Amino acid sequence: RPLSCPNHEGKTMEFYCEACETAMCGECRAGEHREHGTVLLRDV
C-alpha cells in the first residue's frame, strides 16, 4: 500500500532523499529537497 506524505495531503511518497535518508512525495522533492540526490522509493 502506498505511503501518504505527512506534509502534503493526498500525495503519495514515491521518492527517497539520499541526503536526508527519508521518503518524500513529488512536492517535497520539488521543494525543500530540490538540491538533494533522490531516487525512486521502489529502487531503495
Rank of each mutant, 00 (worst) to 15 (best):
K11E: 13
P2E: 15
H8A: 01
E18Y: 08
G31F: 06
T38S: 14
H8E: 03
T22R: 07
Y16K: 05
E32N: 03
C20I: 00
V39S: 11
E18W: 03
Y16R: 05
M24H: 08
C5P: 00
A19P: 11
P2I: 15
E18G: 05
C25N: 01
E21N: 08
L40H: 07
A30D: 11
E9L: 10
A19W: 07
P2A: 12
G10M: 07
M13Y: 05
L40V: 07
R29E: 12
T38W: 14
F15G: 03
R34H: 14
E35H: 09
R29Q: 13
H33I: 01
H8P: 04
L41A: 08
H33P: 08
C20L: 00
E18H: 07
G26T: 05
D43A: 03
E27W: 04
E14H: 01
P2H: 13
G37W: 05
C25M: 01
T22Q: 07
D43C: 01
M13L: 06
E9Q: 14
G37F: 10
C25S: 02
D43V: 01
A30S: 10
H36S: 03
R42P: 10
P2Q: 13
E18M: 08
T12C: 03
T22E: 06
S4C: 01
L3R: 08
Y16V: 01
C28D: 04
G10R: 08
P2T: 15
S4A: 10
H33L: 01
E9S: 14
V39A: 12
H36M: 01
T22S: 10
T22G: 04
E14G: 05
T12M: 08
C25A: 02
P6M: 07
E27Q: 05
E9T: 13
P6Y: 11
M13I: 08
E18A: 06
D43E: 14
T22P: 01
R1E: 00
T22I: 14
E14A: 05
E21F: 03
D43P: 12
F15D: 07
C20K: 02
K11L: 08
L3G: 14
E9R: 12
V39F: 12
C20Y: 00
P2G: 15
E9V: 08
R42N: 15
K11T: 07
R42V: 05
E27C: 04
G10F: 15
M24A: 13
R34L: 09
E27R: 08
F15V: 02
G37A: 14
C25E: 03
P6S: 12
H8N: 02
E32A: 13
